[in-house]
């Protein structure tokens, strides 16, 4: 069994179902905080947090600016803003230009979290029709974190996992259930 201070997950097309599948395998007492970016339409409010919360029976919240990251929580990025992790392990929002046409962008979360958590981070990239997240995942690896890519053969849309694989060799290439099982064994590491 290994440990982590946080898990970051990125997904795009087909991402909602994939997120359910992965997060649904985590035990109710799972203590490592999970931060997710799912590409969303920018201009309307999203119900992702509510939907996940109801289905998963876990506390899921849209990440707020300057909020401290708390153990056991699942955070999702809201529409229209990039979500980042600061060095003091709080969240921040920003409105720089979209990255790969996306705001929130997976790269924003992944790269900032890689800097904040270093080797104590697990990064997961799932299905999607976009290159977002590939650079961020490589940065997680570079900073000593653990990286997981959904098996492109299984992904609803293979482009995003394939873009990640073209950039670096992740620690694991797994099916959704395999990813869920692996994450479920993680223990929170002391800060």
């Amino acid at each position: 069994m290994s440990s982590a201070q946080a898990i970051v997950i990125g997904a795009s097309a087909g991402g909602v179902a994939a997120l359910f599948e992965v997060l649904g395998r985590l035990p109710p007492t799972f203590a490592v905080p999970v931060l997710c970016v799912l590409h969303l339409p920018q201009d309307r409010p999203s119900h992702l947090a509510d939907v996940l919360q109801r289905r998963l029976r876990r506390t899921v919240r849209e990440g707020c600016d300057k909020e401290r990251i708390v153990a056991g929580m699942i955070y999702v990025a809201g529409p229209g803003y990039h979500l980042s992790v600061e060095h003091d392990l709080s969240l921040s929002l920003s409105q720089e230009d979209p990255v790969h046409f996306s705001r929130p962008a997976i790269d924003f979360l992944f790269e900032s979290a890689a800097d904040a958590y270093g080797g104590q981070l697990v990064g997961v990239l799932l299905t999607g029709a976009n290159q977002d997240g590939a650079a961020g995942l490589a940065r997680i690896k570079q900073n000593g974190g653990l990286t997981i890519v959904q098996d492109p053969r299984e992904a609803q849309v293979a482009l995003m996992p394939e873009a990640a694989l073209a950039l670096h060799r992740p620690d694991h290439i797994l099916s959704l259930s395999g990813i869920g099982q692996l994450l479920a064994t993680l223990e929170p590491s002391a800060c």
């Binding site: 990039h82 980042s84 992790v85 600061e86 060095h87 921040s92 920003s94 720089e96 924003f108 790269e111 900032s112 800097d115 904040a116």
Partner: peptide
């Protein structure tokens, strides 16, 4: 300023 965003910029 918030570190993550200014670093990116």
């Amino acid at each position: 300023y918030s570190g993550a965003s200014i670093k990116r910029r």
